[in-house]
Amino acid sequence: MRRVLGWLVLLFGVLLVAGGTTVAVFLGPDDRASTGPHRLTSAGYAILTAPDAFQYGGVDVELDVEPQGRGQAPDVFLGLAHVVDAEDYLGGSPHTRIDTVSIPWDLTTTQVEGERSVTTAPDDLDWWLTRDLGDDPVVDFPLDDEPVTAVLMNVDATPGVQADLRASLVRPGGFVGGIAVAVIGVGVTGLSRTRLVRGDSRPGRRRTGRLSRRGDRSPNSHESRRSG
């Protein structure tokens, strides 16, 4: 039983080392995993994320976009909205929806058809949870369970959106935390290994075993000696 427990503790320690190291390597000393720039293009009025596009929770997301296009690219607007607001604002209009985002980088998108025109510039609206605009807008937000959507549009709400996106998952203290977990894992692994090795070669245990075996045999030996 003790032996099984020892192996389990060893396994736990190895997992801690592996997990902590992976997190530290993944995030790096700046506590972020970045990807991009990636080109995003839509013939519609906006590129937006589905509420559950980012499946990772407990981290912050930072989005950084740079408008692209032929000639002088228009400034772009980048905002985060509750899905109720975004659906009312852009529902029925042609746009591109990002359904899933996987890091390092994999997108699945849907081109949403629509007839409705978007006539109100995004910056004229007051319900954005966070927003930025210009030639290099940046927004960051926590990924919690709120149904939010990130929206990228031209500032003048004209159709035809093209921009390069850089996305980062940020976990403040994640690098140090990962290293700390890995160090704890090393400690747990070392301790459990030592106990397992020592447990196998402990003289007291062997003696007990021998005594026990001897004890099993000794009456017979005694008898044989007596009878002899």
Binding site: T22, G58, D145
Partner: peptide
Amino acid sequence: MVSAAGCSVVDRDVPETAGKP
């Protein structure tokens, strides 16, 4: 749990229908 480049992070639980105050 899902995997992000080998890093296990918490899975988000976004409700399908969620009202806005």
